[in-house]
């Protein structure tokens, strides 16, 4: 296949960026999207040009490090698929593909397609954990957890922290990410002790990071590679209200 590419190039967080055009012939349909970028970078090196910087690591859809906007959609045209799991057979010969970084005020561009998602780490630091020091744990089977509850907690815990939710949201909101962690921990008996403090601190941090609010368009759910449900947002709101009403 032959592909036309329009790719966002930007020197650093402070610089202006612009779209640059590239042509790529001999694209194999079995290539992954990132392998297509690899082969473009090989060509740039052969021409002694600076390569296109993009984030990626595991290339099997689990580390959450990859992620770009492809033709205006986070992680590209397939629902619930990371950029690394997208293959060129999804595109057609002669297609023009627009590639940009994830856009959110809280995700500054570092260079080209690489962004800074450390805001997510700070939201977890605010309370996304159970305070169990090494050595304090009781025997594992002393806390029975029903199959359904464990599965439901897993559904929330499966978030890979890629940021596609915030990038897809017109308000650049991080509620899907934040609520998934709050729900994961609040549903488990081990997590209930700290639930009120957790939700208040995590929501406060999310707001402090310049993420926008939620206007319930559900765009995030469609793009989420792990199919994290917006039901988590409802759970977070309930946790937050309970924590605000019943505590001082």
């Amino acid at each position: 296949m032959k592909i036309h590419l329009k790719i966002w190039r930007q020197e650093n967080a402070g610089a202006d960026g612009r779209l640059m055009d590239y042509e790529l012939g001999e694209v194999d349909e079995n290539m992954s999207f990132l392998e297509m970028l690899d082969s473009l970078n090989e060509q740039l090196i052969a021409r002694s040009e600076r390569v296109i910087e993009f984030d990626h690591d595991c290339r099997e859809g689990i580390c959450g490090q990859c992620g770009v906007m492809i033709n205006g959609r986070a992680h590209g045209p397939l629902d619930h698929t990371t950029t690394c799991q997208l293959h060129m057979r999804t595109f057609r010969d002669g297609d023009t593909i627009l590639i940009e970084p994830f856009r959110a005020a809280a995700f500054p561009v570092l260079r080209d397609l690489k962004i800074d998602r450390s805001a997510f780490d700070r939201i977890i630091q605010a309370g996304g954990f159970i305070s169990a020091n090494t050595g304090q744990a009781p025997e594992a089977n002393s806390i029975p957890i029903g199959h359904e509850m464990a599965e439901s907690a897993f559904d929330s815990a499966a978030c890979i922290g890629c940021g596609a939710c915030a990038a897809s949201c017109k308000n650049a909101s991080a509620v899907l990410f934040t609520s998934a962690k709050i729900s994961h921990l609040a549903q488990l008996p081990q997590g209930k002790v700290e639930r009120e403090l957790r939700v208040r601190k995590m929501v406060a941090q999310m707001d402090a990071e310049a993420f926008g609010g939620c206007s319930d368009t559900r765009a995030c759910e469609v793009e989420c590679p792990q199919q994290i449900s917006v039901a988590n947002i409802a759970r977070m709101n309930r946790e937050y209200l309970t924590a605000s009403w019943f505590s001082v």
Partner: peptide, 20 residues
């Protein structure tokens, strides 16, 4: 290790009776 991970909230697979 299993004790520690469960205490941290790692959602291991459970049987219907609630045990690991």
């Amino acid at each position: 290790l299993i004790d520690q991970a469960v205490a941290q909230g790692v959602p291991f697979a459970r049987e219907y009776g609630g045990y690991l």
